[in-house]
Design a protein around this nucleic acid. Sequence first.
DNA 1: ACTAAGTGGAGGAAATTCCTCCAGTACTTG
DNA 2: CAAGTACTGGAGGAATTTCCTCCACTTAGT
Lengths: 199, 199
Amino acid sequence: MRADALERRNTLIKAARAVFADRGHDAPLDAIAAQAGVGIATLYRNFPSRDDLAHAVARTTLAEVRELAARALDECGDEPEAAWRRFVEAVVELRMGALVPALVNSLDELPPDVRDTREQTKATVTELIHRLQGLGLLREDIVPLEIIMGIAMLTRPHVLMFEDTTANLVPRLIAVFLAGLRPDGVPLPPPILPETAVL
Amino acid sequence: MRADALERRNTLIKAARAVFADRGHDAPLDAIAAQAGVGIATLYRNFPSRDDLAHAVARTTLAEVRELAARALDECGDEPEAAWRRFVEAVVELRMGALVPALVNSLDELPPDVRDTREQTKATVTELIHRLQGLGLLREDIVPLEIIMGIAMLTRPHVLMFEDTTANLVPRLIAVFLAGLRPDGVPLPPPILPETAVL
DNA sequence: ACTAAGTGGAGGAAATTCCTCCAGTACTTG
DNA sequence: CAAGTACTGGAGGAATTTCCTCCACTTAGT
């Protein structure tokens, strides 16, 4: 594969993540090509179907989250509090909410490698959160999935996101959510474990 | 106006709220008519434009929220904690997230009566939250708008919402959010007040 | 400098959504 | 309970959006 072609391919994946996050999984593919500054044909050549593109987005994003969780685990020894904060900030930045439709719409026929990445990411994130629970930084009565889903929901696309006046809103809401995750909060009703989810 | 026609009109508004909440403000009007179990012509006769319908949804929903806040204020004397819980539960049930696009897309040319209802609702909700802050049940470093927006974001439509396995997720996330709203949580960064918002 | 890999975007096909029209249905009133 | 009129449903053509192929042209790599 030619070097410039590979670069364009990666640009497309990034653009797709942004557009899926902003306008949902049904966003016109033309918009993604435009966002990537690339012709529509280039998109179709790289990703014959919408699902191919969605899976590529899932693959890279999940890998990034895994990477972030692994780093946070490393840093847990020294400064667990800061490590957790940085991890959440980075995940917020990734706009994971964009992944939900891609992963859920076709959980059954998910390509094996995406499925694997998902499992690995899930394992690493779970380890991180259990570690933090052990350290008394996160409440015990919550499962990792719920935390990730909460972040995903709060960072999903939103009309107001494009307004300058509310640019500050999402971080604030995340902060409240994180405050609610601390162990000194009021107890939660017991969870029912979902099978199907982003992570 | 004939009695059955009025009833259909109300059914349409409820259906529109549900469909807007589930599929966004751009949902096809046919879907709303279908959800209401009514012909498309009936929808167009009652609401010539999409905005007319959206405004009707906003009008009734905002009025309902105001009603709920007023009731919660009444009950604050006896059992403020339970009053707050019931208020939030009811607002969650209303799927306020559906309103955001309707109110924001055209804040300028919002019909006067909707604008008025919005102001009144805003005032009552603000009073309720200030009261609860005074009672030490809610943290002081947050503005009413942020609370409502948090609930709206967490109750927005979501692919997973339709899965039985995750039916339990939203209440849990709301519970975490509420826990984060309690005054004993960690302090939040200072807010920047948004001008434009649901409430 | 040559060649094969790669590109953009025009534009017809396909799908979706809009919205009018009118023959027919069913409240209401007397 | 009959008459009249307010109201209904949904077919279907127009308008819009989205898809996706095709090919003349460009450019990276050797």
